[in-house]
Simulated scan of single mutants.
Amino acid sequence: MSGPDLEALFRAAGVRGWLLAADIDTGREIGHGADEPVPTASMFKVPLMVEFCRQADAGLLDPASRVTVTGADRVGGPTGLSAMLDDVTISLRDLAYLMIAVSDNTAADVLLARVGMEAVNAMLDGFGLTGTRVLQSAGETNSSMADDAGHAWPFLEPEDLARLRVLDPPRTNHSTARELARLFGLIWRDEAASPSSCAWMRGVLNLQVWPHRLASGFPYDDVAVSGKTGTLPTLRGEAGVVEYPDGGRYAVAVCTRSFSTALNQPRADAVIGTAARMAVDHLRR
């Protein structure tokens, strides 16, 4: 499998693509543009979850402690607390679940305020993930798009794209395919936090409800796919882990940017699973 193979696959789907797939246990890997910075969109919620767990391990917060989320706390989003109308009292741990399983923006921002952006970035530095940064909350991301475009998203025109800070990695939450995959490897090897916290993170990541990207490449009852998607105008991505019944486990990150501004792009979603499957098959051969 070569770089041109993946390049042709991505272009046929109408996207640019970046990929890293790695055998979690042997370190063998295959990449395509794996070290190029890319916006992470909602995938920033994974390092936030890791730092939340590390603070719980250190006794800096109680994951069972409860907070009340009010209308003033809500930020835009179609899922979870973001879509609710009434005040909700919920534990910090369940906020973390919602921000991963259904990509709840409000849950993420309430948790980020408690954990601290500086702490998340310090954790990333400690793991040598210096190309990954959390610079904005979900609410700040949404606001910046409206400010830059001059009107509400997701209805954007092609001329709006050049003005969007969220599409410029240095000015938004960003990472690389390699570092996203490395972070998942740390979680699966019990190195990101305590073994019990890593086990909890693996369980939550396996509960993500979206089947149309990474999981679409592995439609088998005995293959487990866990992950976190990210979506912004023209951007679609997912990072996660694919586990086979023979014990093989592979951290995969696929990020794409489409040539079209259309909201619904099933080919762009599907190519994430197809590219991941090609890469994992290559590693398993």
Rank of each mutant, 00 (worst) to 15 (best):
A101Q: 11
V102S: 04
P158K: 03
W153M: 12
M43F: 13
S137Q: 05
L156C: 02
S258V: 00
T172K: 05
L183E: 06
D57L: 11
A64Y: 00
D25Q: 12
A146P: 00
D57I: 12
D190V: 11
S91T: 14
V15F: 02
A193E: 06
V204G: 14
L92H: 13
R16S: 13
F52C: 01
Q55H: 04
Y97M: 08
E7W: 04
A22E: 15
I100V: 13
A107H: 08
V50C: 14
M84A: 10
G80Y: 07
G71F: 11
D190T: 04
D148H: 00
G237W: 03
L235W: 09
I90S: 09
E7H: 13
T130H: 13
R202W: 03
M99N: 09
A268L: 04
L9G: 02
D5S: 10
R165F: 05
V120E: 10
T141R: 02
P219H: 12
G33H: 07
T172Q: 09
A22C: 14
P78H: 15
R285P: 05
I187C: 01
G273S: 11
D148F: 02
T261W: 00
D190M: 00
G14P: 03
E159W: 08
Y244L: 12
V166I: 15
S226N: 10
A113I: 07
V15M: 00
S226V: 03
D104L: 02
H151D: 04
D125H: 04
A199V: 00
D5G: 05
G237T: 09
A162H: 14
N142F: 15
A21L: 03
G77Q: 03
A12N: 15
T229Y: 05
L60Q: 13
M43H: 10
V252P: 06
A83K: 08
V120T: 07
A113C: 09
T89G: 11
W188R: 11
R54C: 06
A239I: 03
N173M: 04
S42M: 07
H32Q: 08
K228A: 02
L20R: 14
A41S: 12
S82R: 07
P39E: 11
A13R: 06
T132G: 03
S194K: 12
D168F: 13
T234N: 00
V50N: 02
Q136V: 11
S216W: 08
T106K: 11
E238M: 13
D73C: 10
T130V: 15
L20A: 14
T261H: 12
S258E: 01
G240V: 05
R163D: 15
G273L: 07
A72C: 07
L214T: 08
T79L: 07
T130A: 13
L112N: 02
R202G: 05
V15G: 01
T26W: 10
D5A: 14
Q265I: 00
L85N: 14
L183C: 06
Q136E: 13
T70W: 12
I24Y: 02
D23L: 09
A12R: 15
V223L: 08
F259I: 00
Q208R: 06
G71H: 09
T274F: 01
A253T: 08
Y220L: 05
A22Q: 15
T130W: 02
M1E: 10
L232W: 05
Y250D: 04
L205H: 01
M84K: 07
M117V: 14
R182S: 14
A8D: 15
T229R: 01
R277M: 02
D281M: 04
L129V: 07
A21N: 09
T132D: 06
D104Y: 10
P245C: 03
